[in-house]
Design a protein around this nucleic acid. Structure first.
Lengths: 359, 359
DNA sequence: CCGCATCCTGTAAGCGCATACACTAGGCGG
DNA sequence: CCGCCTAGTGTATGCGCTTACAGGATGCGG
């Protein structure tokens, strides 16, 4: 009934359990004749090594972990939305990147969205079973992270560098937004730009605003202290924030620079409702590079984050640190790319891959 | 240096290791006063229970696994394609579904794409570390599956039911294609339908063809023995197969029913190149419901698979079986939905969620 | 023929935890 | 005041594997 173990295999193959173990761990240290016999018996018995026992004994699991917040609202999960690419958020792309990279390095990936059971559950589930893991900002309480990171490598993805001895990964938020704003000012000749910011507790959004400020300063424009309006990153927030802005200022801005794509989409909607044309009357740009941005009309100009690469870099950092535990903490800044589509006033981009003859 | 263990906590809290263990496993069996003391010490020391040791001792891990083939070609991974929603394939949606469902049941998810290191690596990595897992068809050699399934619950997703004592999950391929073909025949009055099939070793594609046959038979049309042309599921194959078909038969068919969306997209391209209008001259329908189908013009009518639900159902089956190991094997058939867009001749659909004011 | 290095294999000691079982201290009815 | 039950805790064992360490062969030079 119970699954066969090294003991069963050893007995049947007339060797000691050590030899069986060696066959799997250090095949070259076993005479090939013996090895073949053991393997044959193993196959015959249906032996599968216990990862737990192996991990216990060798103090390593060959598994990396990823914790991310549970963005999606489980309630709103009708079938339509369930397969909506809009739902293809951040975390999924990072997961994909990590999975790939982990595999390349011979690791498997354990994923967990933090939610249920309090922090204990997350910690127990993931931290106890992996050799190291990545955390999306604000998923795990800093306090817990502090504890866990004493035990195994942790890399923090995005967000602020809450704990300074952790490896840290972020994208060029400020530089990306600087470039984008500069593009609007320089290439499209726009002067009255408005910034639709995120919540003040989002370091990413704040960094983007700083980039925006720098661009204004560099162009000799008035530098705002604060975003002209703010939202909580959803499309609905983008609409509302845009409405508020339009209501407040008499004349609409020439361009709206939004802290993320979702809100930029909301801005598009709000502007259209007000009878303002994009990009003729108001240019709109986002940040993130979500798939939906390509589908809407006008298509959304945005700063594209290398989300897949974030995941890969996270794994690389973990593997590096596993190999060299006392290496000083590293912080990586990943570059972003400008994706110029229609909403900033650029000509409709060349048809994109896969759509060449369909557009 | 080494991470703190139950022993460290026990000594510091002046209790036995058993008590420490109980604090985590059966908190109610420990006097609250003692419990608090232990927890305080644990926090102080930064104690994190070892999942390996726990798993070893309790013979369960609280982790479910997912194995899927590595579809994406790692070579073709320039940044553009990397974030392309076209890449958002099957496996990713299933992963999402499983992750959600697993979390609901208190499990974490271990994912591994089969590729490197021979089957041993996959088996060792996943099978040895989980309480049960799901396999996408043809990922793991049947022979290995046979062995592993003697040890722990395995549910097979899609594909044929290779091993009959396994729980099995599939979508209504035949019925879905039957409905779709019937729609073309009955609602659009089309009679000369061509089927663009997959490879013969794909049971899914074959099942879809059977549905197509049934629809033909039901409508009193000639029933083909074989698909009119075949491809290997990629867009390029769809183009090539369509070209071959058009070249072979003098008159183009009134409709092309394609075994999957990718090939349907290829068909769209090939038809347009030949100067044939879709859907006026030739209707085209796909199968799968990939996001890209919504983006192309004409937008693609297709049979949408509930991929997310597949993942959830897989977890449900696993959890069920874990609770009742000797339950007789179950096979679930998930329904598909018809997604009627432009390419079949239906009117452009109502704007979809999130695009309402943007289209 | 002996000593020693080389190769292969066995012995045994954990790895960190769960848990059956034994045990102690009270509480309670008789 | 005794037996018995309950609650709380400790003792001891084992989960299945890895890995020093310790041999037993074997081959070689001396």
């Amino acid at each position: 009934m119970g699954a066969p173990t090294v003991y069963d295999v050893a007995k049947r193959a007339q060797v000691s359990i050590a030899t069986v173990s060696r066959v799997y761990r250090n095949p070259d240290t076993v005479r090939s004749q013996t090895r073949d016999r053991v393997l044959a018996v193993a196959r015959e018995l249906g032996y599968v090594p216990s990862g737990n026992a192996r991990g216990l004994a060798s103090r390593s699991t060959g598994v990396l972990g990823l914790c991310f917040p549970d963005y999606a609202d489980p309630e709103v999960e009708d079938d339509g939305a369930a397969d909506d690419p809009e739902q293809m958020l951040y975390a999924d792309e990072i997961t994909r990147g990590m999975e790939r990279a982990a595999r390349r390095h011979g690791y498997a990936l354990l994923i967990a969205a933090s939610l249920a059971g309090g922090p204990e559950s997350l910690v127990a589930k993931v931290a106890g079973r992996v050799d190291g893991f990545a955390v999306l900002a604000r998923t795990v309480p800093t306090e817990d992270l502090e504890i866990i990171s004493r035990r195994l490598p942790v890399v923090m993805i995005a967000g602020p560098r809450e704990i300074d001895h952790l490896d840290h990964l972020e994208v060029a938020n400020a530089d990306g937004e600087y470039e984008m704003a500069t593009h609007l000012i320089r290439d499209h000749g726009l002067r009255r730009l408005a910034f639709l910011g995120g919540t003040t507790d989002s370091p990413d959004a704040e960094a983007r605003f700083h980039g925006f400020q720098r661009a204004c300063a560099a162009a000799g424009l008035a530098v705002p202290d604060e975003p002209d309006t703010r939202g909580n990153f959803t499309q609905a927030d983008g609409r509302a924030a845009t409405d508020r802005l339009l209501q407040r200022v008499g004349q609409p801005p020439e361009a709206m620079v939004c802290a993320n794509d979702q809100m930029a989409l909301g801005a598009l909607q709000a502007l259209e409702r007000q009878g303002l044309r994009v990009p003729q009357d108001v240019a709109v740009v986002g940040f993130d590079g979500i798939p939906l941005g390509r589908m809407v009309r006008p298509s959304l100009t945005t700063v594209t984050q290398p989300m897949r690469k974030l995941g890969e870099a996270a794994v690389d950092l973990l593997v590096e640190r596993l190999g060299e535990p006392n290496r000083s903490p590293r912080s990586m800044l990943l570059p972003v790319t400008q994706t110029r589509r229609e909403s900033c006033g650029c000509p409709s981009p060349a048809p994109e891959a896969g759509l060449s003859r369909l557009g």
